[in-house]
Nucleic acid binder design. Sequence first.
DNA 1: GCCAACGTTGGC
DNA 2: GCCAACGTTGGC
Length: 151
Amino acid sequence: MHHWLMKSEPDEFSFAELARKGKEPWTGVRNYQARNFLRAAQVGDLVLFYHSNCTAPGIVGVAQVSKVAFDDPTQFDPKSDYFDPKSTRDNPRWSCLEVSFHQTFRQLVSLPDLRECAALKEMLILRPGNRLSVTPVTAAEFKAIATLGRG
DNA sequence: GCCAACGTTGGC
DNA sequence: GCCAACGTTGGC
């Protein structure tokens, strides 16, 4: 069992939308390190859902991996923002997976909250300049954040 | 809108 | 394989 943190801009895809739809293919990851994390995820892994690039950045709830990684269809679609002309069907570069809604936090665990928490000092997301949209989280970090979020 | 950080690209 | 240029991310 692994734990992850995934970032999404709420203007693009919000956690509320995941709650409404129940599940969503997590496509558009175009960074090799993040892709490798996606490929390591297993069904049942819990995912902290982080809203970035918004007025109140932070973790809003928990999702769960419901399908392991498969070829990201958007890489083959010339109409998609995520189209990659260098990727072929014989040798696809990019993977996606499916996430399902799990739980909405009672309160936002904001970026300042995360920075304040001594147990979270090592989190990748808190490093300056970190741009990975998918990062691993330890079980202890997950627990600390879930405790804050569940209030 | 600014800017720091970092990944990627491409010339050499 | 080096490295400068460029693009993107994301907090503020």
